[in-house]
Nucleic acid binder design. Structure first.
Lengths: 130, 130, 130, 130
DNA sequence: GTGGTCTAGACCACG
DNA sequence: GTGGTCTAGACCACC
């Protein structure tokens, strides 16, 4: 799995890395039980400090996406049941995205097609009518 | 239009304000050509520093959502044609949202229903089949 | 409020500091709404790195004991309702403490008297029969 | 006696094991004079490294909870008279627990009831008025 | 002014 | 070997 970090971005590196790992797990490039590189390895691979990677791993751990084992390093967790709290967060974000989309001239149909396509790219097995 | 700001949030106030204004325009509460309060008025209304509001307005201007006229103040711009750059940004964000959704146990159908519902709440006039 | 840190201890400094702040809030030396020193101030006062203090504050924030405001720094939160999760944690810790107490020759009555006395020292107003 | 270890926990395995043995002795599941499994046996039973078990036993020995005889292996020590040093340690821990309890909205009476109940579960024979 | 982030390099605890 | 902690000093974003 390849990571592309923008050092100039206002989004902190550890958040960019977190987002890319979450996307990777979502896409199935990283599967439940699979190991992530060690903190040192990842840090050296992507050219950042070990503490930055450590912060990413701690964040992912606190979100329940990975587990950190003293012996084996970090491994991907199986999918968890979703909480009401998560649902609210998703709706807030979708609301903002919807607003931006329509302000950029995108209509309902196009927006939904895009949602469908993107989600579909991740899970080609779950195809079908909405 | 009412704004609710969380001073304790890690999201900067000027970004929170920007997001709420964008959502407001998207929802139709603020229409093209309509005026926004002056920087001072807004700052006093919501109890933040004028510099913070100024930063919000500059950001909205740079995104093409509002125009700032030295005499008339800030006004909402009409919807713009959407750019390829915007499309990429939207897809990136949707990809992350999709990944998080599926990691939180949400399936394709539920995710798309949610997208549809949220977008629909904003634009009740654009209803119909996908 | 005075802090005493043991640099030789196996308990990380940021945890020691966290424990002492929690105890301080519990004792009423720090009251809800009151401000904690800035990260830099605290770091300089107790002679540790700012990042160590920052870690303590982030931990306290994640536990809901303090809020961090971009403008005013850190302030103590009001008491929260207790969760089932907390209750389990408390019982586990009490179980270990009880075991240690009896292995050190302390009987039931002495143990309970001690619990009573310690809790009472914090809240002199809540006196009475058990 | 059964042990449940969490390899993912931030509490070191040897400490988890130590805590569970201490709790077991406190509960009376392990009595004075009784033997503990050999280091190798224990390590194989619970699936950890022998060094880890060895560390646990050394810790318990240094705390005076067990004796290690080259020929007979490890045996549980009788209850010792309690020292002033132990008393201080207990009070420190109770103080932190009391503070956390009250910050989680627990009042004096509820806290003391909990202490009583937990201690009571260990020593059903020592019942009576406080 | 504040907190947040990052680095380079070090040391320690764990297993 | 691993992750966890800490430092000293820097830079940046926010308000």
């Amino acid at each position: 799995m390849i990571f592309s970090l923008d050092m100039k971005s206002s989004t902190p590196i550890y958040v960019q890395l977190r987002n890319q790992i979450v996307t990777g797990i979502g896409r199935g490039e990283l599967k439940a039980g699979e190991s992530l590189p060690t903190v040192r390895q990842m840090a050296s691979d992507i050219g950042v400090n070990t503490m930055t990677v450590n912060k990413t791993y701690q964040l992912l751990k606190s979100e329940g996406f990975i587990e950190i084992d003293r012996r084996k390093g970090a491994t991907v967790c199986p999918v968890s049941a979703f909480s009401e709290k998560y649902r609210e967060k998703l709706e807030d974000e979708l609301e903002l995205l919807s607003a931006e989309a329509s302000l950029n001239g995108m209509d309902r149909q196009e927006f939904l097609k895009t949602c469908e396509r993107i989600f579909g790219q991740m899970h080609p097995e779950q195809t079908g009518e909405v």
